[in-house]
């Protein structure tokens, strides 16, 4: 059951991810990206990490992709996009080389990976639950967690600074 579900979601994830790249209409790309996030969340649920699954959907599908779509709406994604895109020979060769290099790196990185199996003696299936995650975050990883919070605060202050009304500027 779980295994067949895994293969179903894995193939769906790959399919959606490929569709993100090959869709001509950027809005379709965004929709397929959202679907990809959903299937990834399904994987999290298969791994008994419900909190991560929910947060993945809330943050990525619910907020970030909305902003993506938001920006796409302002761009004219009509038929003339095709014409303005430069498709000369050099770009094609450069693209092929870059893609090949990336592929090589991925292959090289994955070549020596050994799939680790969890030790049944210490394995805890409840590790992904909210309570356990919270306990770990606030005890073992307290410092990194707080540092990330400070990072967020810094970015928030930056956003406020950018969005602040300049002297003399009038919106309404």
């Amino acid at each position: 059951m779980t295994e067949s579900l895994f293969f179903f979601f894995a193939s769906l994830t790959l399919l959606c991810a490929i569709m993100v790249v090959i869709s001509k209409n950027p809005v379709f790309s965004v929709i397929f990206l959202i679907l990809t996030f959903f299937t990834i969340s399904a994987h999290y649920i298969l791994l008994n990490a419900q909190f991560l699954a929910a947060v993945n959907i809330i943050v990525y599908a619910g907020a970030i992709m909305v902003l993506f779509l938001f920006v796409l709406m302002f761009i004219n994604t009509g038929k003339n996009v095709e014409g303005t895109l430069k498709r000369n020979m050099l770009a094609k060769i450069a693209g092929t080389i870059a893609g090949g290099l990336l592929f090589t790196v991925v292959v090289a990185a994955l070549k020596d990976v050994t799939l680790g199996h969890p030790d049944p003696a210490t394995y805890d299936s409840q590790v992904g639950m909210v309570e356990n995650l919270g306990k770990v975050l606030f005890t073992k990883y307290m410092l990194p967690f707080q540092l990330v919070a400070v990072l967020f605060l810094v970015s928030m202050v930056g956003a406020v600074m950018i969005g602040k009304r300049e002297t003399g500027e009038q919106n309404f």
Binding site: I34, F51, I57
Partner: peptide
């Protein structure tokens, strides 16, 4: 009965805007 009930609702509600956005754009 999931132990992330509120997050589920929150996630689903945040998806609701896609219907409006896609429909409005299309």
């Amino acid at each position: 009965d999931v132990n992330i009930g509120i997050l589920y609702i929150f996630g689903v509600v945040s998806l609701g805007v896609y219907g409006l956005m896609i429909g409005g754009w299309a």
